[in-house]
């Protein structure tokens, strides 16, 4: 209700021209300007438009908190950081870049790419002496930070990073940067999904049967390894292999094996599943 009232009250002064004059004189003060001009001059128009665009790109579940954090970041990354040391400034840039890449989910392809390129620009700004560009050190640091806040096990993260990290002094081209950032995000999601899969496999009992886990992972590996990359029929093949029928068969077969019934804990399962994923990540060279 309050919002409604606010909205209604806003146009009212604009139509009643008698009221507008004194109000503006009180706020704006020195020179007579219309609202639009003021907004334009203060940079509010572009700022709000930018914010709206970001919201539209990212389509967050909670737009209010998204916007709040957005404006907060704007304040933080403002000019006040100028006096700080080089190291501090770099840290700030890193935080900002991290924020950029997290704005949109990687499935929003365009938005994600935009944000990654913003992050890249942000990181590649250097001091006066140095040439612009992202070096391997800051790139690797960003990747580490991205991976830190997921629930991915340490071991898994480090094995991915080993593949996509760059050496400290190397210049990182944008494509490599993008691929690295994307791999990190996809890994985090992969780990989360594998976790859910484990929940399904253990049927609420907390521990899943080792044979079943191995059968499922084996089927996945089989589907991932299927034929070569360019053939579209591969998708059908994988779909058939990962269908409920084939999986049920594989699991049943595994259970019928007369082996000692042992369980596989969650960590082990995650490790094995992510190993399949990481094997498909293209190492940087």
């Amino acid at each position: 209700m309050a919002a409604c009232e606010k909205r209604r009250s806003a146009p009212a002064p604009a139509t009643g021209s008698g009221l507008v004059e004194p109000v503006r004189a009180g706020v704006g003060g020195r020179e007579p300007e219309s609202e639009a001009e003021f907004l334009l001059q203060a940079g509010v128009t572009s700022m709000v438009r930018e914010a709206l665009l970001k919201v539209l790109e990212a389509r967050p579940e909670e737009p209010v908190s998204f916007l709040a954090s957005y404006f907060e970041k704007l304040v933080l990354s403002g000019p006040q950081g100028g006096a700080a040391g080089d190291r501090h400034r770099q840290q700030q840039r890193l935080v900002r870049a991290l924020w950029y890449v997290r704005l949109a989910h990687h499935s929003h392809r365009t938005a994600f790419n935009n944000n990654v390129s913003m992050a890249y620009e942000c990181l590649s700004a250097r001091g006066r002496r140095k040439k612009p560009g992202v070096n391997g050190r800051i790139y690797s640091e960003l990747l580490k930070k991205i991976c830190q806040d997921g629930e991915a096990p340490e071991e898994v993260v480090s094995s991915l990073l080993r593949k996509i990290q760059c050496r400290d002094h190397e210049a990182v081209p944008f494509d490599v940067f993008r691929y690295g950032v994307l791999s990190c995000f996809v890994l985090l999601e992969f780990v989360a999904k594998a976790d859910t899969l484990y929940d399904v496999l253990d049927d609420g009992s907390g521990v899943a049967d080792k044979r079943v886990c191995q059968a499922v992972l084996g089927t996945l590996e089989d589907a991932l390894g299927a034929s070569d990359f360019s053939v579209p029929i591969r998708y059908l093949e994988a779909g058939s292999k990962l269908g409920p029928d084939c999986l049920a068969l594989a699991m049943d077969k595994a259970l019928l094996e007369r082996k000692i019934c042992s369980s596989m804990n969650r960590e082990e399962f995650l490790k094995k599943a992510t190993a399949l994923f990481i094997a498909k990540v293209k190492p940087i060279d």
Binding site: E189, F190, K193, L197, V216, L220, L242, L247, F277
Partner: peptide
């Protein structure tokens, strides 16, 4: 299981 595994596959792909 199939749903979940397929999602893992999609991510990797």
């Amino acid at each position: 299981v199939s749903t979940e595994v397929q999602q893992l596959w999609v991510l990797t792909e």
